[in-house]
Amino acid sequence: MTGTQATIPAQQRRSGAARQMLLAFASLIALVIGFSLASPNFFQVSNIMAILQATSVNGVLAVGVTLIIITGGIDLSIGTLMTFCAVMTGVVLTWAGMPLILGVLTAIGTGAACGLVSGMFVARMKIPPFIATLGMMLMLKGLSLIVTGTKPIYFNDTPGFTQIAQGSVVGALIPGLPLPNGVLILFLVAAVTAWILGRTVLGRYTFALGSNEEAVRLSGVNTDAWKMAIYALAGGIVGIGGLLISSRLNSAQPALGLGYELEAIAAVVIGGTSLAGGRGTILGTLIGALIMSVLTNGLRVLSVAPEWQTVVTGAIIIVAVYADQLRRRKASQG
């Protein structure tokens, strides 16, 4: 009898989380339908591809920071880290003239190394994540400007670099579906990260740390090392974001980056991941990122001033989190 008592709330809980995801997904669909009805220019293959392409950088950053937010942390440095990774790639490819693959590895490696440093500040030195990554954010911004002498580095000497984000492997295989590589990379990154979260030890500890870090530590887990690993993984993912943005711009723009972290965190929050840690999904983050770019794109198609797009995005964040609060309050009342 006691066994059944335990399973009933379990099912309720699962359906609650599913409902949350459904809500975000339904909002996305509603937005797409709404914009399609409002403007014939919206639901065109070219526009949809533009939306997806616009999602790719923010999406990748959001996937990375989702990991950190599930641990109960936050990472404010991902925007300027993205830029720093792009800059280091520029150093390796354009200044040193190394082959493309080394540039790719540099971006990911730089991201992972910086993530590891952030993780060390947080885990070993016990600096609150907000502060540690705020410091990282400023340091990385400064470093990008110092390394480049404040001037952009162009990738004109590296043929194929722009193909990373702008080419279309899918389009070459399936004519009529010109899915940009950047979007393909976003989906791959999301799929792999979702797999890591759901299936691997690293993923298990990501949720466990956000749920009750002290309990994990008391269970004999080296929480500091795992936390650093999670920050490093997130950093590596941000490195991929750096590749995407520099490939799209065909340059590493050292002044860019600030503000990207907040967009990414917004996508995570809209996707239903709890800032309190312990709960979250990559699929939700992906949907959150899509909602943001659909909104921006749709409002632009409807010729709404860009200032208002920002206002609407802000409002959406509040509405999304409030809806989640309402749902949770209902759930806790049974």
Partner: peptide, 14 residues
């Protein structure tokens, strides 16, 4: 000292 967001088996073998 349990992790509320994980399930029973996951908690035991953490």
């Amino acid at each position: 000292a349990l992790m509320r967001d994980l399930n029973v088996a996951q908690n035991i073998w953490i």
